[in-house]
Amino acid sequence: MTPLALYTAAGVGLFAVGLWGVVARGHLFWKVLGINVMGGGIFLILLAAPPRLDPAQADPVPQAMVLTGIVVAVAATAVALGMALRVAARTGLPFLEEDAGDPGSGGGADERGRE
């Protein structure tokens, strides 16, 4: 097994585990964590990308992508956790309660005038 195949397989495995976490776990913290694990899997694949120009030298482009990806992931995680806290504060539970969605609920009323 070539290192590339090994890393790619491991990366896809991590991606799948993370996705499973997002789908199967109800708690918002687990969902956010799952998304981060998915990202980790992708970074692994990128770092194993074959050298582009010089076989003796690692390709710097994927490394730059991973660094940028980490920055994006940190920002996204911060926003997501902040919003999860807001959900917990507003509804009392850190879960995505099922949207009732019945026609009569008048869902999403614009309650601006009453707050």
């Binding site: 918002l28 998304i35 998915m38 992708i42 694949i45 997501a80 309660e97 614009d110 309650e111």
Partner: peptide, 29 residues
């Protein structure tokens, strides 16, 4: 919008959106 409905809907949107981006990034890799 300062309603619990909006907060939950926004959070669900964020999770879907982030997972969607991860699928895209895996494709990029």
């Amino acid at each position: 919008a300062v309603t619990s409905k909006a907060t939950v809907a926004g959070m669900r949107y964020l999770v879907i959106s982030l997972v969607g981006s991860m699928f895209f990034l895996l494709g990029v890799a």
